[in-house]
Design a protein around this nucleic acid. Structure first.
Lengths: 158, 158
DNA sequence: AGTCAATGATTGATATATCAACGAGGAGGG
DNA sequence: CCCTCCTCGTTGATATATCAATCATTGACT
């Protein structure tokens, strides 16, 4: 059990999340919020649907996280006048500062987690993770056909 | 942003979780419950503290998940007479059957996610994930040590 | 023994996620 | 023009997770 990939991925992911938790709290964010401000800092203003699509989470989760971030002054929401269903979400200066602090912790974390990895190993590791992600997105369907995974769009977002 | 290890790990982990979700629901379990019954099936009866320690989650989360599993008839709880603070948690037959179904889905998932990986690549990938986990558990404490060689197969952790 | 700290489990408050249902706005076909 | 369908966002119900506080039991020290 300990050596299944399911468990190995669980351990690595949880260790990462547990490492970051105190830093995220110190910045004044909730555990799922840094990725929102990171996307907004990197890609600029966007609608909530784009955030939900990019991180593959439910739009409802985005809605509630942005409520909290907006109340905390990290971002603003305003109606998109060219499509009045959508909101335009944009970072404030406070949001950008929070992102800078978070990125610094992420860089430090990457040094710790990859300690002892050669550049070649880092590259291979990144490729392995990406291949796993792509295998889930585009399964080979070689065996029994499962129709539970309808086609989901393009791969080259952002 | 897309190519940070933080994001790559997030993508791989989420894809795995999203793949498993419909199967877990079909078995009649919640998203965090399969790992509980998997541990109990593999290691035998234990107390709740042991589950919390093994999966590195809060004992409160274990308590509530076991409430649900007990109510669903997947396991039983009884007081440990040799330490009346602790409960002994043990799978029922229904719990073992649920685990069998879950393990089957896990094996199928591993085939999908590692499609195209050679045996050597699988082994390297597993070692990389394990090294990341161990780097988080035992950080090098800041020193510029270049010669760490953590690829020994032994692990005396826990 | 009697006090006090540590341990195992539970409960409450809150954040993150899902799904389902809804309201509001927009796009096309009668 | 109006009706239908689709999209974007929100809200409610529920599951998983955290932290903090509590209760009961155990163990250790005086």
């Amino acid at each position: 059990m300990e050596k299944t990939f399911h468990m190995l991925l669980y351990r690595a992911f949880h260790a990462q999340r547990n490492y970051l938790r105190p830093f995220v709290a110190e910045i004044g964010l909730g555990s799922g919020q840094p990725k929102m401000i990171a996307y907004l800092a990197a890609q600029g203003a966007c609608c909530q649907r784009e955030l939900a699509d990019y991180f593959e989470i439910d739009p409802a989760a985005v809605s509630r996280m942005l409520d909290s971030l907006e109340k905390g002054g990290f971002l603003t929401r305003r109606v998109d006048e060219s499509n009045r269903r959508a909101d335009i979400v944009e970072l404030t200066e406070k949001g950008r500062e929070a992102n800078d602090a978070w990125q610094a912790h992420c860089r430090e974390m990457e040094q710790i987690m990859l300690d002892g990895f050669t550049p070649e190993e880092r590259e291979r590791f990144a490729q392995y993770l990406l291949r796993v992600y792509r295998n889930f997105r585009d399964p080979k369907a070689g065996g029994p056909e499962k129709s539970s995974r309808p086609d989901n769009g393009e791969e080259g977002q952002a």
